[in-house]
């Protein structure tokens, strides 16, 4: 692999609370090469958004990094003073937040917000920014962009606001884009268009994209590699085709099996029974062990780290030679 653009090493994040210390990220390691799209998927609450927030230096208080480091183009960025980080954000890292409303200022028109972002980060002649703002709105599929550039966020539909946020994140042409659920409020057609814009940036500018999403269809079509998170850890990582078609970790297998099919209609969708553990009650050993159909003794005492599995890396004792023959092969999601 090329020298990584982003390198997250053993990152841990914790929240001190009245009920004790919550470990929200536990030794997360991920890296992205220039031009690469890394999909991040996993259980709701697993720590995907926090991973992205840590990279852009916007962990929600009282969250703090308690271990590990984050490198952008070889330079540490997890310990920078807020002022330096603010300049990196926007110019070198663009962020698309999961919540479009927090990213938009309700008091300013969408055009003004785009223009100001470009003025802050790019050296452009005055008339140019407004033209580019309209251009960006068109690229993300806002109809009649010229007429609606002066509209306020509340006058847009949910999906239109999300597209404005995407335009805002991309308009300063950053090296790295953290995209947290960028397409959830979008219909499939606009989704395709937005993904095309993102892919265009990766091809033409070598922009790397960390794409956090629940939409496996979007992952399958956009990502090069995929990381799967569960209870604050990366539990599987590998090339997209292998993760989707021959996942190794029993959680990933269950996740892929829960995707509703468009071809057939069933009375009940397949689900993984039970819920992810609370952060203050993560069981010892493998965090998935209370819900795992393949659980065996070792899983309850020893924590598995990522290890070579079927065609990916998975944190699961089934793939450790020392566990054999207790373990049986994982059933396929597509059985």
């Amino acid at each position: 692999m090329k020298e990584p653009l982003l390198d997250i090493q053993e990152l841990s994040v914790e929240f001190p609370t009245r009920r004790g210390l919550l470990k929200a990220l536990d030794r997360v390691s991920l890296s992205l090469a220039p031009g690469e799209v890394l999909g991040v998927v996993g259980e709701s609450g697993a720590g995907k958004s926090l991973t992205g927030a840590a990279v852009i230096g916007l962990l929600p208080p009282p969250g703090r990094i308690s271990g590990g480091q984050i490198l952008l183009q070889g330079e540490r960025i997890d310990n920078l003073p807020p002022e330096r980080m603010r300049r990196i954000r926007g110019r070198r890292i663009g962020a698309i937040f999961q919540d479009p409303l927090t990213a938009l200022n309700p008091l300013y028109s969408v055009g003004r917000q785009l223009v100001e972002t470009m003025q802050t980060h790019l050296r452009l002649p005055d008339g140019e920014t407004r033209r580019r703002a309209i251009d960006w709105l068109q690229r993300v599929g806002i109809p009649a962009a010229e007429q609606r550039i002066d509209a306020y966020p509340h006058e847009f539909s949910g999906g239109m606001r999300q597209r404005v946020v995407i335009a805002l994140a991309l308009c300063a042409e950053p090296r790295l884009v953290i995209a947290d659920e960028p397409t959830t409020a979008l219909d499939v057609s606009i989704q395709a268009q937005v993904i095309e814009v993102l892919k265009g940036l990766t091809r033409e500018h070598g922009t790397a994209v960390m794409l956090i999403t629940h939409d496996m269809g979007v992952i399958a079509e956009t990502a090069d590699r995929v990381a799967v998170m569960y209870a604050g850890r990366v539990i599987e990582v590998g090339p997209v085709r292998e993760i989707v078609q021959t996942p190794s970790h029993p959680y990933t297998v269950g996740l892929m099996g829960s995707i509703p099919s468009l071809e057939t209609r069933v009375e009940r969708l397949r689900q993984i029974d039970g819920a992810m553990p609370r952060l203050n009650a993560i069981p010892p050993g493998c965090p998935f062990n209370p819900r795992c159909p393949n659980v065996f003794e070792r899983c309850r005492v020893e924590r598995p780290e990522l290890m070579p599995a079927l065609a990916t890396q998975a944190a699961c004792w089934l793939y450790d030679a020392a566990s054999l023959p207790a373990a049986s092969p994982v059933p396929s999601a597509h059985a």
């Binding site: 998927v41 259980e43 709701s44 959830t184 629940h214 996740l255 829960s258 509703p260 689900q271």
Partner: peptide, 14 residues
């Protein structure tokens, strides 16, 4: 269910 992973989504839809 737009913000839910497919497994929690399946639980909610069920």
């Amino acid at each position: 269910t737009s913000a839910l992973d497919v497994s929690v989504q399946a639980q909610i839809l069920n």
